[in-house]
Amino acid sequence: MCDGVAFSEVAMIGPALSSQPFVELLSLLSGIVSEPLLVEFPFERNYVTSIIRVSLYVSLAAVAASTLFSLPVAMLVGFTDFPGKRVVVAVINTGMGFPSVVVGLVVLFAVSNQGPLGSLELVFTKEAMIMSQFVLATPVITGVSLAAVTSVEEGVQDAAYAMGGTRLDVALVTIKEARYGIVTAVLAGLGRAISEIGSVLIVGGNIVRADGTSITRTLTTAIRVEARQGRYETAFVLGAILVALVLLINGIVLHLGGTGRGR
């Protein structure tokens, strides 16, 4: 029954997105997901809702920032030839598989009071978690977009030039041609961000206030805590929510991006 409701949500989200912030949608969503299971749930709804909110806030912010950074980089690298280009591409591809705990460790040292960004007091905050997820998502989004951009046929770009287009026009045409690949890139980045645990655990500290409000606890780190305490049922419920969220986001983006029709 859960599935049916969630599915119709996907269909009506399009118009809702632009008008209302979807914090409301989140509480709705968590209500839908947790209500049938509430019998076994030892927590107030506030706990689950705030965890979902932290997870989405951190991952979406990181992916949004990463996309803004990655697309120009991918275009630049894709369109220009320069010495050492292959090295840059190799570095980007290596970054795709970079272990998240190492990223967490590096970001921790950067934001720690002793580190270069220490004065900003970012350790154990969502902002630090966004930083580490930005680092994790960027190579994925850049790498996959780069592949998409470079696979656009040169003929398309030549045609745009021939029609008197500026470099910007050519870039826009290329992005349009490569849009499926770019959407895939963003989704891959989001998948990497929202499902990773290593870095957010280290830099975020997995904090929940005494009243059950999550400060830096995400779905992944919450699952770890519940498993540690032997509450496997709760861990599974949170796991199901995480998978459902990823599916939902993929559904929304694919629906709005129109890739469904491309198949």
Binding site: A61, A64, I215
Partner: peptide, 28 residues
Amino acid sequence: RKFLGATAGAVAATMAGCMGNDGENGDG
């Protein structure tokens, strides 16, 4: 346009989340 709408929606949600947080824990 739909895709841009979605992006704008995501940004709005991001900002809403941000403001919500400032409102409730007041740290930072």
